[in-house]
């Protein structure tokens, strides 16, 4: 197993720990569940540490780690593992307002936003969160998701229109 020089490793470790709050938010907005989100973050960190030699300084480290987390999430979907108990936030925080598509969200709560995100197809959900919440550029998102920038834009436009309909915006 290749040994990384300690002097190089410390900053990476600190970068990783420093990005945990945003990684958790991203994971939660993808999965809708705190438990799954923290598992996903841990898996992504494990993979990032194993692959840290692949990180190129010219890429923002956040974009690189977000892509790893996003890929781990896609793997999980493929694996079927995400289809267990799911919307724990929607269940517990304000169950009364989470009728999904049927409910017009008069007041946007965390749970209702997560429920609306959950109603989007995964490929729309991820671009929506990466651009609107995590503030990545279209080009960064195209590179993270491996699709052309035009595809990112059309997914994002569809996601926003659907969300606007749900939220009554």
């Amino acid at each position: 197993m290749p040994m990384t020089d300690q002097a190089e490793q410390q900053p990476f470790r600190d970068l990783l720990v420093g990005s945990l709050p945003k990684l958790r938010r991203f994971a939660l907005s993808l999965t809708g569940s705190r438990q799954r989100a923290d598992d996903l973050v841990q898996t992504a960190c494990m993979k990032a540490l194993a692959a840290q030699g692949d990180w190129r300084q010219e890429t923002r480290v956040e974009a690189w780690i977000f892509r790893i987390l996003r890929n781990a999430w896609i793997d999980e979907i493929r694996h079927g593992a995400v289809r267990g108990p799911h919307a724990d936030l929607a269940d517990h925080e304000d169950a009364a307002t989470t009728d999904g598509e049927a409910a017009v969200m008069s007041k946007l709560t965390l749970a209702s936003v997560l429920a609306a995100l959950d109603s989007l197809p995964p490929e729309q959900r991820e671009v929506m969160v990466l651009v609107c919440v995590e503030e990545f550029s279209y080009a960064e998102v195209a590179s993270m998701t491996g699709v052309p920038i035009g595809t990112v834009m059309s997914r994002l436009a569809r996601a926003r229109q659907k969300f606007a309909g749900l939220a009554g915006i």
Binding site: P21, R24, I169
Partner: peptide
């Protein structure tokens, strides 16, 4: 408006304290 609503609603999540078990594991 959609972007602002989404960003505003999810903002507090990034301000939450990271659970010690997760931080420790990493």
């Amino acid at each position: 408006a959609v972007r602002a609503q989404l960003a505003q609603t999810l903002q507090p999540l990034a301000e939450e304290e990271v659970p010690e078990a997760l931080r420790r594991a990493v």
